[in-house]
Structure formats: structure tokens, C-alpha cells
């Protein structure tokens, strides 16, 4: 279980530096607050359909994730700490540690986004179990692939733009399933009628984590 211990050490180190620097968390929170506030003011008194609410929720999550999640690897590259990490830590442990950090940041973002939506764009009556499951599994899917893509783009010179361009097509299946699950939850659809979306999110995250663990050593060591 050495890999689990090593991944835990990477996560603890990243949490410590994040708490002291707050670069990724600050970016995520600021983006979520600004975008939801802007949407709320521009829509004013218009009632939103559940389909639009679900899409808005995931647009905010996607772009906030794009703004903040790449920091985990890009900051290592920009400051020059990636070489020290590469000389010391196995690639799979680095991937898992960074994935868990990004997942933690996304869970914090999820809670913040739900609170902001309830205040500024009230969600009404909904199936909370399905809503939270969809959001949670969607976050795992988002974190699994964006962590791998962040490691790839960190090696390039046009990191910011490339991250979103590469991440969007890869994340599209997860986004579509996440939006569909959230819409059904906002329509108070029973959980049993949304198993297809949830299964897709679980499969997507499972495949991405497996692929990342298989490929990450090559991405990390070159």
C-alpha cells in the first residue's frame, strides 16, 4: 500500500501549500461568485426552466474548474518544483494526490454553488438525493480527467488556453450526463429513472482514473 501512503503525502503537501497560498481555491470561489451573481442580475425576475438551471449550474462548475484545477500542476511547473517532485515521487502517487486535491476543491465549490444558487437563482422543490449524487459523481469525473489534462498542458508554453481547449471535448460526455442528472433532480424525478446518467458518470470516472494511472508515468517522466 505504498502508493496510497505516497498519494496521501502528496495530498497533504498540496493542502498545506493551498491553505498557505490559496491560489486554486481563491480562483474557484471568485469565478463561481462572479458568474452566478452576474447571471442572477442579468436574468432578474425571469423564471428559469429546470433545463436552463441545470445547464447554468454545470457551465459555472466547468469554467470554475477550468480556471482553478490546472493550478495544481501549472504552479509546480512555473515555480520549478516539478523537477524535485519528479526526482522523488512516483507518477501514480502524484496523479492520485493531485486528483484528490482537485476533488476536494470541487466538493467545496459544489457546496458554494448550491448555496449561491439557492440565494440568487432558487432551485425550488427537487430530489436532493439525485441532485447530490449527480453533482458528486460529476465532480469525480471532472477531477479525474482535468487532473490528467493539467499534467499534460503544464509541459507546454500556452497552458491556460490549451487546458480548456483540450478539456472540453474530453469532458463533454461527463458534462452531458451531469446536466441530464441535475435536470431530472430539479424536476423531482425518482432516483430509479436517472440510473442511466449516474452509471455513465461512474463509468466515465472509472475509465479516466484507470487510463490516467496507466499513462501517468509516461506523462510525468518525459
Amino acid at each position: 500500500m505504498n502508493w496510497a501512503k505516497h498519494a496521501w503525502r502528496v495530498l497533504l503537501k498540496d493542502m498545506r501549500t493551498e491553505l498557505r497560498g490559496r491560489t486554486a481555491l481563491g480562483t474557484l470561489i471568485l469565478f463561481a461568485v462572479v458568474s452566478i451573481t452576474a447571471v442572477s442580475y442579468s436574468l432578474g425576475g425571469f423564471g428559469l426552466t429546470t433545463a436552463v438551471q441545470a445547464a447554468l449550474l454545470w457551465i459555472v462548475l466547468f469554467f470554475a474548474a477550468m480556471a482553478g484545477l490546472a493550478r495544481s500542476f501549472v504552479a509546480e511547473r512555473e515555480t520549478g518544483t516539478d523537477l524535485a517532485l519528479r526526482l522523488s515521487a512516483p507518477g501514480s502517487a502524484v496523479y492520485l494526490g493531485k486528483f484528490l486535491l482537485n476533488l476536494l476543491l470541487l466538493f467545496i465549490l459544489d457546496i458554494l454553488v448550491i448555496i449561491l444558487f439557492q440565494i440568487l437563482l432558487p432551485l425550488g422543490t427537487l430530489n436532493w438525493t439525485l441532485f447530490m449524487l449527480g453533482l458528486g459523481l460529476g465532480s469525480v469525473a471532472l477531477a479525474s480527467s482535468s487532473t490528467l489534462i493539467a499534467a499534460i498542458v503544464a509541459q507546454t508554453n500556452i497552458r491556460g488556453a490549451l487546458f480548456t481547449v483540450l478539456a472540453f471535448p474530453v469532458l463533454l460526455p461527463a458534462l452531458i450526463a451531469g446536466i441530464a442528472a441535475s435536470r431530472k433532480a430539479l424536476d423531482s424525478t425518482p432516483l430509479a429513472e436517472a440510473t442511466g446518467e449516474l452509471q455513465l458518470l461512474v463509468s466515465y470516472a472509472g475509465i479516466m482514473i484507470t487510463v490516467a494511472l496507466m499513462l501517468f508515468d509516461y506523462v510525468w517522466e518525459e
Binding site: R9, K13, R16, T17, T81, L83, A84, L87, S88, A89
Partner: peptide, 28 residues
Amino acid sequence: LGYVGPDLTLYDDLTVAENLEFFHAFED
């Protein structure tokens, strides 16, 4: 390998001991 070069740095937000203990932890 032990390497000291211009392209290598340690974590600014960690103390000297925290940096060394973090990297050393992978050595068992």
C-alpha cells in the same frame, strides 16, 4: 540521483524541514 541545478527549486510555502521531510517520505 541527487541533483542541484538552476531548474530545480523547493516549495516556497513550506519550511526547510517540511520540504525535506516531504521529499524524504518517499524513501521509506
